[in-house]
Computed example of a mutant assay.
Amino acid sequence: MALTISSGATPLRMQSSTTALIWICAWVVGIVAVHWREELNTHHVLTFLHKALASTLLFLIVLRVAWRLTHPAPDLPDTMSR
């Protein structure tokens, strides 16, 4: 069953709208973070959480790259066109 969009919105138009919405949300989060930093992060819990998540993500990215360098990707099946 194929997914159809009946509202007349094209994928490119939806992508543009979604990108704009993401940028607006990021801008709002940035404004809130700057203006209410002390009220929202009094004991620096959010800062510690941010650093912990960033460190974990960095570790996983380095681990993934190291794995990819030591384990090459398998060949494509013969039934698949190049």
Rank of each mutant, 00 (worst) to 15 (best):
residue 1 M to A: 05
residue 2 A to C: 00
residue 2 A to E: 01
residue 2 A to F: 00
residue 5 I to C: 01
residue 6 S to C: 04
residue 6 S to L: 08
residue 7 S to A: 03
residue 10 T to A: 05
residue 10 T to P: 00
residue 11 P to W: 10
residue 11 P to H: 12
residue 11 P to M: 05
residue 12 L to R: 10
residue 13 R to N: 12
residue 14 M to T: 04
residue 14 M to G: 02
residue 14 M to Y: 05
residue 14 M to R: 08
residue 15 Q to C: 06
residue 15 Q to H: 07
residue 15 Q to S: 09
residue 15 Q to R: 08
residue 16 S to F: 14
residue 17 S to M: 09
residue 17 S to F: 08
residue 18 T to W: 07
residue 18 T to N: 05
residue 18 T to K: 03
residue 19 T to E: 05
residue 22 I to F: 14
residue 22 I to K: 10
residue 23 W to F: 12
residue 24 I to W: 08
residue 27 W to L: 14
residue 28 V to C: 07
residue 29 V to D: 13
residue 29 V to Y: 14
residue 30 G to A: 00
residue 30 G to T: 01
residue 31 I to W: 05
residue 31 I to Y: 03
residue 33 A to T: 11
residue 34 V to R: 09
residue 34 V to Q: 09
residue 35 H to Q: 11
residue 36 W to L: 07
residue 36 W to M: 07
residue 36 W to F: 11
residue 37 R to F: 01
residue 38 E to D: 07
residue 38 E to Q: 07
residue 39 E to M: 02
residue 39 E to D: 09
residue 39 E to N: 06
residue 44 H to D: 12
residue 46 L to D: 01
residue 47 T to P: 00
residue 47 T to C: 03
residue 47 T to R: 03
residue 47 T to K: 02
residue 48 F to K: 09
residue 49 L to M: 06
residue 52 A to L: 13
residue 52 A to E: 08
residue 53 L to P: 00
residue 55 S to I: 01
residue 55 S to Q: 02
residue 56 T to L: 10
residue 57 L to I: 12
residue 58 L to E: 08
residue 59 F to G: 03
residue 59 F to K: 02
residue 60 L to M: 13
residue 60 L to W: 11
residue 61 I to L: 11
residue 61 I to M: 13
residue 62 V to F: 12
residue 63 L to N: 12
residue 63 L to H: 12
residue 64 R to H: 15
residue 64 R to T: 15
residue 65 V to G: 07
residue 66 A to W: 11
residue 66 A to G: 11
residue 66 A to K: 11
residue 67 W to S: 14
residue 67 W to H: 15
residue 68 R to H: 12
residue 68 R to Q: 14
residue 70 T to P: 00
residue 72 P to T: 03
residue 73 A to W: 12
residue 74 P to R: 05
residue 74 P to I: 02
residue 75 D to W: 13
residue 77 P to C: 00
residue 77 P to K: 01
residue 79 T to F: 14
residue 80 M to F: 13
residue 80 M to G: 00
residue 80 M to T: 08
